[in-house]
Amino acid sequence: MQKLLQGMVETYGDRIYRLVLRYTGDHTQAQDLTQETFLRAYKHMDSYDRSKPAGPWLFKIAGNLCRNWLRDNRELPADLNEDLYQSTDSGPEELYLEKEGARELSRVLRALPPIYREVILLKHVGELSYAEICETLDLEITLVKNRLYRGRIMLREALEKGGYY
């Protein structure tokens, strides 16, 4: 069973970590929550259908932990660690603008209603397919497509307002 868990960590560990990091904004807490996700997965391994990929099941556990974390911590962090932003080879001015854009994107994401935010994060940070998002959130595919579309429109409108789009 530990071999199965190791495989899960290797395949999904980084993606789950990145998703949790988006919620907590703190590397230590993100590591703790990721560890907790895999501990719970190990504990409830009997309920995992081995004929299916483990991704949606693990993201569901991680999502529940993140929701609990948010409930206890009231809201998403005001800002994320500097090193969370994707590094590029740009010059100082471009780098500054990129970071400003990334900060604005984080701010806009925080302002989105949770149902849209969740789908966007699973798609763009968790790198899940529509079908996997459906399974993770127990939603119909039409609803997932709809939420993703509306969420993206909201994201664009908010970025346009701030002059970042």
């Binding site: 530990q2 868990l5 190791q6 960590v9 290797e10 560990g13 980084d14 970590y17 990145r18 990091l21 988006r22 590397h27 993100a30 590591q31 990721t34 560890q35 895999f38 501990l39 190990y42 090193d83 969370l84 932003y85 994707q86 590094s87 854009g101 990334a102 994107l105 984080s106 994401l109 966007i120 994060l121 798609k123 763009h124 940070v125 790198e127 993206r152 994201l155 664009r156 970025l159 789009y165």
Partner: peptide
């Protein structure tokens, strides 16, 4: 492409699984 910026290149620290299996 704008939303792709939400992702990052953050990775789990080396030895993460070792700590995890220790807790198990």
């Amino acid at each position: 492409s704008v939303a792709e910026g939400l992702s990052s290149d953050a990775r789990l620290p080396i030895g993460f699984y070792k700590v995890l299996s220790g807790r198990i």
